[in-house]
Computed example of a mutant assay.
Amino acid sequence: MITRRTMMAAAAAFALSAPGVAFAQGQPIQFRISTAGAEQDWLARSLYQFKENVEKDLPGQIAISVHPNSSLFRQGTELPAIQRGNLEMSTMTTFEIEQQLPEYGIFSGGYVFRDYDHMRKVMDGPIGKEYIAAVASKMGIQIIDFIYLGTRQVNLRQLREVKTPADLAGVKLRMPPGAGWTALGRGLGVTPTPMAMPEVYLAMKSGAIDGQENPLALARYNNLQEVSQQFVLTSHLVQPVAFAIAKPVWDKFTPAQQEVLRKHARSAAEFNDKGRLTDEKELVEFFKKAGLKVTEPDLAAFKASVDKQYAEAGISQKWRAGLAQRIADTK
């Protein structure tokens, strides 16, 4: 794990000489964006829109390249790459931030956000601004906006009656690795099973796992309807990700350039969010027409179980005092 001292030293070195970033007079700043998002997904499409609009408004000043599908940096390596001065921008998850700022791990918590509108109000309001300031000062990374990755749902290879977490007992569910994910999975009632996403299709087909959880769009892009029989709309995680820029790079921009970047990050986020919300509604019907059963469980029971797991694992005790209530009170 990168320590704060190591990170700050790297950031200082980056401020003096950043590989791959041209700040010389008359040369455009070379600006690379790495994302795990699939090229056809709204996330990557929004980044291409961001590129086009920024380069249009700042001709000859910034040259942006977008690298989807983890084609430039493997997923999970973007954050240290930014902090070491090897990458300018990524779509950073709250789970990555949590590794260095556990006091803000609540933003990765299940059932913390009631829905998309609640998430947007929190992240766009005073709480989100505090979060951005903490990430900038303690991690050397500037968040210029948040974007909606989707609401995560449980996807099963075989039909099952699911009303409460007890109904998912014994289900081997693919989830990302990490203590927060493990606690979330146990709260959902499943046996969390870490696995790389490209392996999921065959694992579900063979029965090596019983299901997976992700936003509906990721299931569609990975053709999981071919190896599934059911979606359970647990809506356990309304997930924001951040447009994250290395702060030494950000600080090299003029205020006018920063304003252009902020403006087009917001328009890109709006483009993504609108498209994704529409997709989520349409995908429910798509999966039903594909022959899958789509069911709705008792969300209050799932929330209570997840909250209990966070407490028992000692995760919620690390969260900043009072933050959970402030988020809940945001209307």
Rank of each mutant, 00 (worst) to 15 (best):
I2Y: 14
E280W: 00
A244Q: 08
L277R: 12
E39V: 13
G291S: 10
V171E: 01
T93K: 02
I82F: 02
H236A: 04
Q229W: 06
S267C: 02
M175V: 08
P28T: 11
K129P: 01
P240F: 05
L224T: 08
A328K: 14
L72D: 04
M197D: 12
V260C: 01
I144C: 04
S235N: 15
A133W: 01
E88A: 11
E161F: 11
A196Y: 01
P215M: 07
A301P: 10
P192C: 12
G150L: 03
G178R: 01
Y148F: 15
M139E: 06
T254H: 08
N155I: 09
T94A: 14
E296H: 15
Q257T: 10
E226W: 06
V162E: 00
V171G: 03
V54G: 08
T94Q: 09
A313Y: 15
I143G: 04
R74F: 13
H118I: 14
Y221M: 11
T93L: 08
K51T: 08
D329M: 01
G189N: 02
A290K: 15
R4S: 12
G178K: 07
V249L: 14
Q75M: 07
A268W: 07
Q230E: 06
F287V: 04
S17H: 15
A166C: 05
W250A: 14
A22T: 13
E78S: 05
Q40M: 03
V66C: 14
E98M: 13
G314Y: 10
N222V: 09
I106W: 07
E78T: 13
E130L: 13
A246R: 12
F107C: 00
R84P: 00
L159C: 05
A24N: 05
Y48R: 13
A9D: 12
L168Q: 00
A134T: 06
S70W: 14
Q317Y: 05
A10D: 15
I82H: 00
G185V: 05
T191V: 15
L79T: 10
H118T: 09
L218G: 07
Y104Q: 00
Y104W: 15
E282L: 11
E161R: 15
S71V: 04
A22K: 10
A196E: 09
P80C: 11
V238F: 00
V241S: 11
K263N: 11
F23T: 11
S305M: 14
E199P: 00
L149C: 07
V241D: 07
L323N: 08
F95W: 04
A18R: 03
T234L: 04
K51I: 05
R120S: 11
G37S: 14
Q61D: 15
S17L: 12
A179M: 12
K289W: 03
D57G: 07
K288Y: 07
G60Y: 13
L184R: 03
T6K: 07
P19I: 11
G150T: 06
D298W: 10
A256M: 12
I143N: 03
A256L: 14
H118F: 04
L216T: 00
S316H: 05
Q100D: 05
Y221R: 08
Q225L: 06
